[in-house]
Amino acid sequence: MGKRMKSKGILPGFGLTIGYTLVYLSLLVLIPLSILFLQTASMTWEQFWLTVTDQRVLASFQVSFLTAFFAACMNAVFGVLVAWVLVRYHFPGKRFIDGIVDLPFALPTAVAGIALASIYSENGWIGQLFAAWGMKIAYTPVGIFVALTFIGLPFVVRTVQPVLQDWDRQVEEAAATLGASRLQTFLRVILPHLLPAILTGFALAFARALGEYGSVVFISGNMPFQTEIVPLLIMTKLEQFDYTGATAIASVMLVASFFMLLVINFFQWKTNKLDAGR
């Protein structure tokens, strides 16, 4: 970092921390990931294009992106709600609920997939309730959505929770004194403050859901053109020892989610600035 930081802050440690961050990031993430593109580069453009625009691949992109998006939306809304309830209210079993929020990470994804498939299939505990209404969950895109919601659940809750915990309630009091209703206070004062954290959680849940494999294969049914997710197609390629085809699809996916994350981070930065300028 030849350049000094632009803000004339007096805090030390920028060189140390940014240096360490960059080195660690490069060694552990960037260099290994660049292998993906290196491997893909052994294809000609035409081969690459044919591989990634295959109808089946496109269909799976659609399935993956849509289900991941809806699952992340679901998590954004309910994640904030859960975080709010956990920080603000007291109710029996609160500690327990707080404790199990992280479990989707701890359970191996395969176990999660098996458990979800058994619950949401037509003879499962919840599946049969829906089956009575003629709705199928397991082995449909809804099943994928359920699995992805499960694995992404901790992200929003856990990013919003600490921010909410540190939140100074005097601001709310001030808003209330000035005559704002609770809903107004929440929408105008609290929510904007939470927005960066929510966006972070959303982005992470979305990105994670895009790549998820272990839990989805058990509940999705894996039907071509309907419930086939991108990671499954990558596995299919590997099964034919087609490493290059697999990395081609993987790098498209990586680039797509990279840009999506970039956009979300940009918005987050924007709202942060707005918030700070207030």
Binding site: S121, G221, M223
Partner: peptide
């Protein structure tokens, strides 16, 4: 075929445990 599991034992489970 309503479900294409990724492995043979997965199929067995679908047939036996899920009753499909």
């Amino acid at each position: 075929v309503p479900v294409l599991d990724s492995g043979a034992r997965g199929s067995t489970t679908t047939f036996v445990e899920r009753g499909i």
